[in-house]
């Protein structure tokens, strides 16, 4: 029997937000998260019971991220000029901008590999199915990406 969707959100909400922040950036991550879970909710009754829920959600998030990135490029003039609005991010400083800026600076392949492997915990083979390419290539990209990320963060982290 399929578990209530609430438990899917509870278990994977954090992971999907990490993936969204890594792929589309902090600013668009919440829209990507919402669209991912709304699409997942629609499709949930048809999800096979033995499916890997996390890989399924990351696949949806991956597609939504592509949509959002395309839309942003199309409407770049409009969306780059968002009016200031009250923060809805919650506690100021709760988003680690230093980390997400460093992730954003990675080449797209490395960024995806880091997001899906290191932040979402998917195996290389599952990631290869989502983004294309070979598991070995994903493994290399994940390794190069996390190395670059550690270097970037250590360069900006003062020694104690």
């Amino acid at each position: 029997m399929k578990q209530p969707f609430e438990r899917v959100v509870d278990e994977h909400g954090d992971t999907v937000l990490r993936v969204c922040r890594a792929i589309v950036g902090v600013h668009d991550a919440e829209d990507a998260w919402s669209e991912t879970f709304l699409a997942a909710l629609r499709a949930y009754p048809d999800l096979p019971e033995d499916a890997n829920t996390q890989a399924w959600l990351v696949t949806i998030a991956h597609r939504k991220a592509i949509d959002i990135t395309r839309a942003r490029r199309r409407h770049a003039v409009v969306t780059d000029d968002l009016p200031e609005r009250p923060s809805t991010i919650g506690v100021p400083g709760s988003v680690d901008h230093e980390l997400w800026d460093a992730v954003k600076a990675l080449p797209p392949k490395q960024r995806r590999a880091v997001a899906y492997h290191h932040f979402a915990g998917l195996p290389y083979a599952a990631i290869a199915e989502i983004v294309g390419g070979t598991p070995a290539a994903i493994r290399r990209a994940a390794s190069d990406g996390i190395g670059a990320l550690r270097a970037a963060l250590s360069a900006s982290t003062p020694k104690e």
Binding site: V9, G13, R18, E30, F37, S94, V95, L99
Partner: peptide, 19 residues
């Protein structure tokens, strides 16, 4: 690095409400 990526509960609550 992975630990720094963890989402805060307030944001997740707000996203849940929006969903």
């Amino acid at each position: 690095v992975r630990a720094r990526a963890v989402s805060d509960p307030d944001t997740l609550d707000r996203l849940h409400e929006r969903l």
